[in-house]
Design a protein around this nucleic acid. Structure first.
Length: 793
DNA sequence: ATGCGGAGCTTTTTT
DNA sequence: AGCTCCGCAT
């Protein structure tokens, strides 16, 4: 940045008159923009919709706009609300703004995802929503477990009405901004013979009792907050002078309402999006939000960014032609000043294995020419396509990486480890406690957990507190009692040490002493080593945070671990995961009817589904800068069965003058374009005696046996601090409040006759808080918890 | 309490 | 075909 850089000026004064003195003659940061981009940056006031086609410099506009607002003193960084969908997008935007305006950008506390900003708002105003500000944020797993409990409590057949199905319904209601009371009766009735609404309400009750929210709640509770407390909303109207929204086409109804409430104040809202890249309809995104923008914000300025800076001519023309088939769109015409470049190629393969081989051959050739494989991507419609491609890459020695896949923080071992840490931090985190109470196995099964639950319900204690109480009584069998006591004592110990110990070290201690790492070391399965490696990685990343609670907040929202080095490896990912990325060379396998467009999308959403699939195709095509290669296979194994397939209709929709049909090297079919260009494919279809089929069979036989060479061996786990065996068993000290005095004195006096489910009738010999010593008629003297006895009567 | 085997599913994915 | 979940048997 030069010394004339406007951003290096001292923090601007909002509303300063000088600032309003418009258009400093082309401030440096405006210079590189084309006229539309510049307009999008400078149209600061009032509602603005920027329709930014693929590769038209959307992010640049957004970041420059933020810079512009700051440098012209229209707003302090802290007065700008900038919302994205993913943490990655937020991170990138933060970096780019920082690059533009310098350290001032660190004061952009309101740049983040819908969810993280919502969480921040909720923590501030938790008490208004009947939450404590240290509420936990549940992930999908927790959610479903909770749903199951709710379903069980209602005595509904879990088989017919599974938890994940209810989770789906509730999620979609939340996506639409509907609280239990708002769900239309007809819709609430579709689940479990009319119980849907009731279950939703019950689930929300459970969440409240746990001081927890799920992802949908983050948004939903904000809506409640804004609507029920206008004064609170007003403070945010005052604060947020400007609102910016990225990927507006992906907003769902709840997010739309959230934005609308916040934008009501000053109406300075700028949404950037591309209706042609809306590919998340299936999870509640409403393309309508973008199509309706002008209606919702009368007088809105609409700016189209149509100059593409990414792809060469043939590629862009191909993508444009395809997307033009869609009816529900605002319409943009992308143009480029780039050369035509190479034509887009379409290659038919006999089967998916040949397809994979063609791709790997091509990449090997590129590798041989010294091209950067980091600039190569294979984009598939469904994850299941990845396997064959990976197998082939392994075989051919093509270095690759899979993007997406199971996320680090979603892996079982990581979630277990986190559950331990959550229990250390909070003795009231029941979900976490339940998750690890018997992991590793310590003989604390359903019976024990059930008992703790009963006690917890009766007393209002958490499970951990109940456990503390239970080990002081004779409720449990000696074995279970000892095991539980060890666990409870251990947590007491860890919580104490947590105060003085770096969290990484603490985590190691906890994982070691709990026997958790031991469990995986004993595990003989192939992925055990990887899991230990992951745990090690977790401990490492822990140290990057100031303390344990802030780490836990981070993981519940930012389920995302920075995707390290951009090595020279080809990327394999789904089309969805590819949105927002670009590569010099893009391979698009699997362009077949049924797979892409996906049959299920068609069945479920009809024409809208087809259009979304087409947008997905468009996203795929526009990821490529220079080289774009499409493939389809005539035979593909789906759910283990070989099925013949026809080329995708999308292939027929591509402009002939920009594409080129390649013959697979091994192809035995002749003939080029016919009336339908892929008539030639018929020569494959019917016969199972073709060489290709036989080859396919052979390959299949060959491949089915051998182990894949994936797992790199020698991932030792010994050297680290985790190592060795002997669990030190320090003095078992237990913190105070073992017997919670909060519950007051027991309702039973000495001499009272009581009945216990397990021990039968007896007389109370003495009372100590909520613990009773009872002389049972049959079982003799036992210490029991008062919540487990009834007045004998 | 645990471990095995059968049954049922299986697009896309963020937070 | 392959994975996960559930129920049953040990």
């Amino acid at each position: 940045m030069s010394e004339t850089d406007p951003f290096s000026a001292p923090p601007p004064r909002p509303g300063g008159l000088a600032a309003r003195a418009a258009a400093q003659p082309a401030a440096g940061y405006l210079a590189g923009l084309n006229p539309e981009q510049r307009q999008a940056v400078e149209a600061t006031d009032g509602p603005v919709l920027v329709l930014a086609g693929a590769g038209t410099g959307k992010t640049r506009v957004l970041t420059t706009r933020i810079g512009h607002l700051i440098s012209t003193s229209r707003a302090y960084p802290s007065q700008i609300l900038a919302v994205t969908f993913t943490n990655k997008a937020a991170r990138e935007m933060k970096e780019r703004v920082a690059h533009l305006v310098g350290p001032v950008a660190e004061g952009m506390p309101w740049l983040g995802t819908f969810h993280s900003i919502s969480a921040k708002l909720l923590r501030r105003h938790a008490e208004l929503l009947d939450l404590r500000s240290d509420f936990t944020i549940l992930d999908t797993d927790d959610q479903i477990r909770l749903m199951k409990q709710v379903i069980q409590a209602e005595n509904i057949d879990e088989k017919r009405w599974p938890g994940r199905m209810l989770a789906g319904f509730i999620d979609s209601w939340k996506n639409r901004g509907l609280a239990p009371k708002d769900v239309p009766a007809g819709e609430a009735a579709v689940f479990a013979h009319g119980k849907g609404g009731k279950l939703y309400a019950a689930y929300q009750e459970r969440l409240k009792a746990l001081n927890a929210v799920d992802f949908g709640d983050l948004l939903l509770h904000c809506l409640t907050l804004f609507r029920d407390y206008p004064d609170v909303l007003q403070t945010y109207h005052d604060r947020f002078r400007y609102i910016l929204v990225d990927e507006y086409q992906d907003t769902n109804t709840a997010q739309y309402l959230w934005l609308r409430l916040l934008a009501q104040g000053r109406r300075n809202i700028c949404c950037v999006g591309d209706d042609d890249q809306s590919i998340y309809g299936w999870r509640g995104a409403e393309v309508d939000n973008i199509l309706r923008f002008e209606h919702d914000f009368p007088g809105a300025t609409v700016i189209r960014l149509e100059r593409n800076y990414r792809s060469t001519g043939h590629i862009l023309a191909t993508a444009s032609k395809l997307i033009a088939r869609n009816e529900g769109r605002l319409g943009k015409t992308l143009r480029t000043e780039d050369a035509l470049g190479e034509k887009v190629t379409i290659t038919g393969a006999w089967d998916s294995q040949e397809e994979a081989r063609l791709i790997s051959d091509e990449i090997e050739a590129m590798q041989a020419k010294g091209q950067d494989l980091g600039q190569v991507a294979v984009l598939v419609r469904i994850s299941a396509q990845m396997r064959e491609i990976e197998e082939r890459f392994v075989q051919a020695g093509v270095p690759y990486r899979v993007i997406g896949g199971p996320r680090f923080y979603e892996r079982a071992e990581i979630r277990d480890a986190l559950a331990y840490l959550r229990c250390v931090v909070s003795a009231t985190d029941d979900l976490a406690f339940e998750r690890i109470v018997n992991v590793p196995k310590r003989g604390l099964g359903d019976a024990t957990v059930q008992l703790l639950h009963n006690h917890a319900r009766a007393t209002g204690f958490s499970l951990m507190q109940s456990a503390r109480a239970a080990v002081e009584s004779d409720e449990l069998k000696p074995k279970a009692r000892t095991a539980l006591r060890e666990l409870v004592d251990a947590f007491g110990r860890w919580s104490t040490r947590a105060e003085h110990m770096p969290q990484g070290e603490l985590a190691e201690l906890v994982l070691e002493e709990s026997g958790y790492t031991e469990m995986w070391k004993k595990d003989r399965s192939a992925d055990a080593a990887g899991r230990l490696e992951n745990l090690k990685e977790l401990v490492r990343s822990l140290d990057e945070f100031p303390d344990l609670p802030s780490f836990l907040e981070h993981v519940s929202l930012v389920m995302d671990v920075a995707d390290g080095e951009a090595e020279a490896r080809a990327s394999i990912m789904t089309l969805h995961a590819a949105k927002g990325l670009e590569f010099d060379t893009v391979f698009l396998p699997g362009w077949e009817e049924g797979l892409f467009p996906n049959q299920r999308a068609l069945d479920e959403s009809g024409r809208a589904g087809l259009e979304e699939e087409r947008r997905l195709a468009h996203v795929g095509l526009t990821r490529a800068r220079k080289k774009l290669k499409l493939y389809f296979a005539s035979n593909r194994r789906i759910h283990g069965l070989w099925q013949t397939s026809l080329p995708s209709r999308f292939i027929d929709e591509l402009p002939e003058e920009h594409v080129e049909v390649e013959q697979a090297a091994s192809s035995y079919s002749q003939g080029g374009y016919g009336a339908s260009r892929f008539d030639r494919m018929e020569s494959f279809g019917s016969s199972y005696n073709t060489p290709g089929w036989q080859r396919a069979q052979e390959n299949r036989a060959k491949n089915s046996g051998g182990g894949s060479g994936f797992s790199e061996s020698g991932r030792g786990f010994g050297q680290g601090g985790f190592g060795n065996s002997s669990r030190q068993r320090g003095p078992l000290m237990i913190e105070g409040e073992l017997t919670a005095k909060s519950s007051g004195e027991s309702a039973y006096g000495t001499g009272a006759r009581v009945f216990h489910v397990k021990f039968g009738p007896g007389s109370v010999a003495s009372v100590d808080g909520n613990k009773l010593t009872v002389d049972f008629d049959k079982a003799g003297r036992k210490m029991v918890l008062d919540s487990f006895v009834q007045k004998a009567g």
